[in-house]
């Protein structure tokens, strides 16, 4: 197979584009796709400060690398989740990346800063581990971005992630979640602006980008995620994709172009009932926010909330 751009031998095949790429042209392809997503969805201005949610995995490290390549002022935020050696290893990859690029990495450690970890905290709070993890990360990334004066939080959600989330939301016809599913979530009312610059790139492309750029990342799956629904949705969509390349992109971008505008009002209506949580000041529709409830049930302490370790 030859590179579609320069006809050199290809090392990566992207079947939905019916194309192969050599290393140099593939890296440019990824950079171009991120730049196009940023422009298409008006994610960032050139002078903006961005906080990248870094996990030590391929997507977040590739995202951080791509934003730095494109010239954005991008710092990283890593959250230690207390998942044994998995957290130790993923944190080491995040630190090594930051050090190699002389980039700023902010760190929060759930056990040290909030007195709980995901494995035991999720059991105590009677939540699925991925639910407790996602809730903790969303809250802490939002708070750190607000406290640090960042213009946006960038997450490594890629085309496969978003297609899988959409698949789950459609299976349940969850209009509130469908109304919130967009590459940009506006800031205001206690929320930091959230952007997903990898929306035009697949999971396989992000792993290939890391290999070609020499970015070491944690390859092993999180031990808490095994068997979760989201991974099942991804497998189901890949079964369709393998016989019909481009199906995932058509599913996601068809939704964003033609359906999302019809359901956005649902999410806007939800924001109207928000007020600051008395515990931490974060926006919530409940008496106390979900994060403060999680910390309390997990036996931790939310004393750091409000000032924020970031």
């Amino acid at each position: 197979m030859k590179c579609r751009v320069c006809r050199a031998p290809a090392v990566v095949e992207v079947r939905r584009h019916n194309a192969g790429f050599c290393p140099g042209c593939f890296v440019k392809h990824c950079s171009d796709q991120v730049a196009r997503a940023i422009e298409q969805y008006d994610m960032l201005q050139p002078e903006d400060r961005v906080l990248v949610a870094v996990s030590g995995g391929k997507d977040s490290l590739a995202l951080w690398d791509l934003l730095l390549r494109l010239g954005y002022r991008a710092d990283g935020l890593y959250i230690g989740l207390g998942i044994g050696s998995y957290s130790d290893e993923s944190g080491a990859y995040a630190r090594a990346f930051a050090e190699a690029r002389q980039a700023r990495l902010v760190e929060i450690d759930l056990p040290a800063d909030f007195g709980y970890d995901i494995p035991s905290g999720s059991v105590a709070a009677r939540r699925a581990p991925c639910s407790a993890c996602g809730l903790s990360k969303r809250h802490l990334f939002n708070q750190a971005a607000r406290d640090g004066g960042y213009d946006a939080v960038a997450t490594g959600h890629n085309l496969d992630d978003e297609a899988a989330v959409l698949f789950g939301n459609v299976l349940r016809w969850d209009l509130a979640y469908l109304g919130r599913q967009h590459p940009v979530l506006p800031g205001g009312g206690g929320f930091a602006r959230k952007i997903k610059p990898l929306i035009r790139l697949g999971e396989r492309e992000m792993a290939a980008y890391c290999v070609l750029q020499g970015i070491d990342y944690i390859v092993e799956e999180c031990p808490m995620a095994e068997g979760n629904r989201h991974l099942g949705y991804k497998a189901a969509l890949n079964d369709v994709e393998v016989s019909s390349p481009g199906s995932k992109a058509a599913f996601l971008f068809g939704f964003l172009d033609r359906v999302a505008p019809l359901v956005q009002g649902t999410a806007e209506a939800e924001r109207e009932g928000l007020h600051p949580c008395p515990g931490c000041g974060s926006p919530t529709v409940s008496e106390v926010c979900a994060f403060c409830k999680l910390v309390e049930r997990a036996g931790g302490s939310n004393a750091a909330s409000g000032s924020g370790p970031g």
């Binding site: 993890c133 992630d161 899988a164 799956e221 991804k234």
Partner: peptide
């Protein structure tokens, strides 16, 4: 150590890593 495409021929003495790319919880 080098990425290859689906049409690449693997020699009998090759060391081949099949690396999964699927990741992520429900967050």
């Amino acid at each position: 150590g080098t990425l290859v495409t689906g049409d690449a021929r693997l020699a009998d003495d090759a060391t081949v890593e099949v690396r999964p790319v699927i990741s992520g919880g429900a967050a």
